[in-house]
Amino acid sequence: MKHYEVEILDAKTREKLCFLDKVEPHATIAEIKNLFTKTHPQWYPARQSLRLDPKGKSLKDEDVLQKLPVGTTATLYFRDLGAQISWVTVFLTEYAGPLFIYLLFYFRVPFIYGHKYDFTSSRHTVVHLACICHSFHYIKRLLETLFVHRFSHGTMPLRNIFKNCTYYWGFAAWMAYYINHPLYTPPTYGAQQVKLALAIFVICQLGNFSIHMALRDLRPAGSKTRKIPYPTKNPFTWLFLLVSCPNYTYEVGSWIGFAIMTQCLPVALFSLVGFTQMTIWAKGKHRSYLKEFRDYPPLRMPIIPFLL
């Protein structure tokens, strides 16, 4: 059985960083990364991007050496992705923050609204209902991160945790300040508006959870398998008939419901920014589905049925 020789060059300087002799033909890129780490321990596998061309796409960890368009002496180019952190850690951090930050404003801890309001309670029912909904949303997200989601990528750049936390924590503080303010004004149409908004919120939260469970069942634990998601017997998953990412559709719907319930401008802005970002993600995933699966359902749109 022939063996391969693998040289790894710096993608920027073309400097030879490592030479691997007698590499098995069936070795994966993940195994080559581990061998590279032995000579350069500062670059652990998650930091490494190996590619066939200095400006090309990163090879997948599961790619097999003998199936790549290389000879028995293969040249790979290395790029440092920077310090990495696990997706689970990032999600837990960015979701735990809003949960606790919101509660600080809800309980009106000292130095927020003035001494005479310390630890007082709002007289408006919608304020307490909003706290329950907000807390439920982020507790749900935390539990899904721990027990439901299966991540195709193990890590992301460390800098992302600061960007994500600034976004989630900042908006949580902004909306919580106004919703729990002693001078907060309840919704214009009173109980009817709150009940309608609560119904929207609850339905969308159930829908979002149902989609996450359906997506989880598509991917076996520990794998990166991708399949076309289809509706199940659960009615909340029937939205798969019309959109590629109904989890985002339901998520946006939840925040629209919360915005109607609280009639709070920061919540509306958070919903708008979230919708914009999720639309970008949904379009990317939709394109990926179309590219990977020739039999992908043609009627589906990325996030909004028939429109977007």
Rank of each mutant, 00 (worst) to 15 (best):
154 G>Y: 12
199 A>T: 07
183 L>V: 13
177 Y>Q: 08
65 L>I: 06
152 S>F: 11
5 E>M: 13
295 D>H: 13
230 Y>D: 08
136 F>C: 03
274 G>R: 03
233 K>M: 12
54 P>W: 07
149 H>R: 02
142 L>N: 14
106 Y>V: 00
12 K>R: 10
174 W>V: 02
182 P>Q: 01
269 L>I: 14
78 F>A: 03
155 T>A: 11
279 T>V: 01
51 R>I: 14
236 F>W: 02
100 F>R: 01
187 P>T: 04
174 W>Q: 04
242 L>M: 06
266 P>L: 05
100 F>L: 12
263 Q>R: 12
18 C>Q: 07
257 G>P: 01
107 F>S: 08
246 P>I: 15
276 T>K: 13
123 R>S: 03
89 T>L: 15
104 L>P: 11
27 A>L: 02
291 K>E: 09
170 G>F: 11
260 I>P: 01
54 P>K: 10
136 F>G: 01
40 H>A: 06
10 D>E: 09
296 Y>Q: 00
24 E>W: 11
44 Y>R: 04
88 V>N: 00
219 R>P: 02
132 I>L: 01
98 P>K: 02
147 F>C: 13
243 V>A: 10
225 T>G: 15
127 V>R: 06
145 T>V: 04
223 S>N: 15
226 R>W: 09
164 N>R: 10
107 F>P: 02
200 I>N: 05
92 L>R: 02
133 C>V: 07
247 N>R: 14
6 V>F: 00
30 A>E: 10
10 D>G: 10
81 L>I: 14
21 D>I: 04
85 I>Y: 15
22 K>A: 12
234 N>D: 09
137 H>C: 15
275 F>P: 00
239 L>S: 01
20 L>F: 09
46 A>E: 14
103 L>E: 07
181 H>A: 15
36 F>K: 01
87 W>N: 03
137 H>D: 00
4 Y>M: 00
89 T>M: 10
38 K>A: 14
228 I>T: 11
68 L>M: 06
181 H>S: 07
219 R>H: 14
134 H>N: 01
225 T>M: 09
70 V>E: 12
21 D>C: 08
201 F>P: 04
185 T>F: 14
159 R>G: 12
273 V>T: 10
193 Q>C: 02
218 L>W: 15
190 G>L: 06
244 S>L: 14
280 I>F: 12
94 E>H: 05
11 A>I: 05
264 C>T: 11
248 Y>T: 15
291 K>Q: 09
34 N>D: 09
47 R>Y: 04
290 L>T: 14
238 W>F: 01
273 V>Y: 09
57 K>Q: 13
293 F>R: 13
307 L>A: 07
13 T>K: 07
61 D>V: 10
45 P>T: 02
120 T>R: 07
35 L>P: 06
98 P>V: 12
262 T>S: 14
292 E>W: 04
135 S>G: 03
271 S>Y: 03
301 M>I: 06
40 H>L: 09
167 Y>C: 05
83 A>T: 10
191 A>T: 09
150 R>M: 14
224 K>V: 07
126 V>W: 02
193 Q>S: 08
257 G>S: 09
185 T>K: 14
225 T>H: 13
245 C>F: 03
169 W>E: 02
6 V>W: 01
148 V>S: 13
134 H>W: 04
227 K>E: 10
178 Y>S: 12
5 E>R: 05
262 T>I: 01
176 A>I: 09
305 P>H: 03
10 D>S: 09
177 Y>S: 03
109 V>I: 02
5 E>K: 11
80 D>A: 13
159 R>Y: 15
9 L>G: 09
289 Y>F: 10
223 S>W: 13
284 G>F: 03
119 F>I: 14
164 N>Y: 01
121 S>F: 12
86 S>I: 08
50 L>P: 08
184 Y>V: 00
84 Q>W: 04
302 P>D: 14
94 E>K: 03
172 A>I: 14
298 P>L: 07
14 R>W: 12
298 P>A: 07
297 P>Y: 00
103 L>Y: 13
223 S>I: 15
94 E>C: 08
15 E>F: 02
92 L>F: 01
185 T>V: 04
296 Y>M: 01
133 C>Y: 05
132 I>F: 05
144 E>A: 02
139 I>M: 08
265 L>P: 11
47 R>N: 00
186 P>G: 02
135 S>Y: 00
48 Q>V: 03
193 Q>A: 07
252 V>S: 03
72 T>P: 06
85 I>F: 08
128 H>S: 13
118 D>R: 04
66 Q>H: 12
229 P>V: 15
244 S>A: 10
59 L>W: 02
214 A>D: 01
194 V>D: 00
233 K>P: 14
42 Q>N: 15
171 F>I: 13
96 A>S: 06
207 G>E: 05
175 M>T: 10
156 M>T: 06
244 S>T: 11
180 N>L: 03
86 S>A: 15
243 V>G: 07
23 V>I: 14
54 P>T: 02
189 Y>L: 02
15 E>N: 14
273 V>I: 14
145 T>A: 11
191 A>S: 08
19 F>M: 07
267 V>L: 06
12 K>M: 06
119 F>L: 11
167 Y>R: 15
16 K>L: 06
263 Q>L: 07
58 S>G: 14
118 D>E: 05
275 F>S: 07
216 R>G: 07
131 C>F: 08
24 E>D: 05
217 D>N: 08
151 F>R: 15
264 C>Y: 05
22 K>R: 10
84 Q>P: 11
170 G>R: 04
27 A>R: 01
249 T>P: 06
172 A>T: 10
271 S>D: 06
246 P>L: 03
32 I>W: 02
33 K>H: 12
136 F>T: 06
143 L>V: 01
153 H>G: 15
197 A>E: 00
196 L>M: 07
299 L>D: 01
239 L>V: 07
125 T>K: 07
79 R>L: 08
206 L>V: 13
233 K>Q: 09
221 A>W: 04
78 F>Y: 08
28 T>D: 01
16 K>W: 05
35 L>H: 09
48 Q>C: 03
177 Y>N: 04
303 I>P: 00
18 C>N: 13
75 T>D: 14
5 E>D: 09
58 S>Y: 03
110 P>F: 14
67 K>R: 10
46 A>D: 00
54 P>L: 10
212 H>F: 05
162 F>W: 01
102 Y>L: 02
54 P>V: 00
116 K>R: 10
12 K>Q: 03
201 F>G: 00
289 Y>A: 15
224 K>R: 10
159 R>S: 08
167 Y>S: 03
80 D>Y: 07
260 I>F: 07
87 W>F: 05
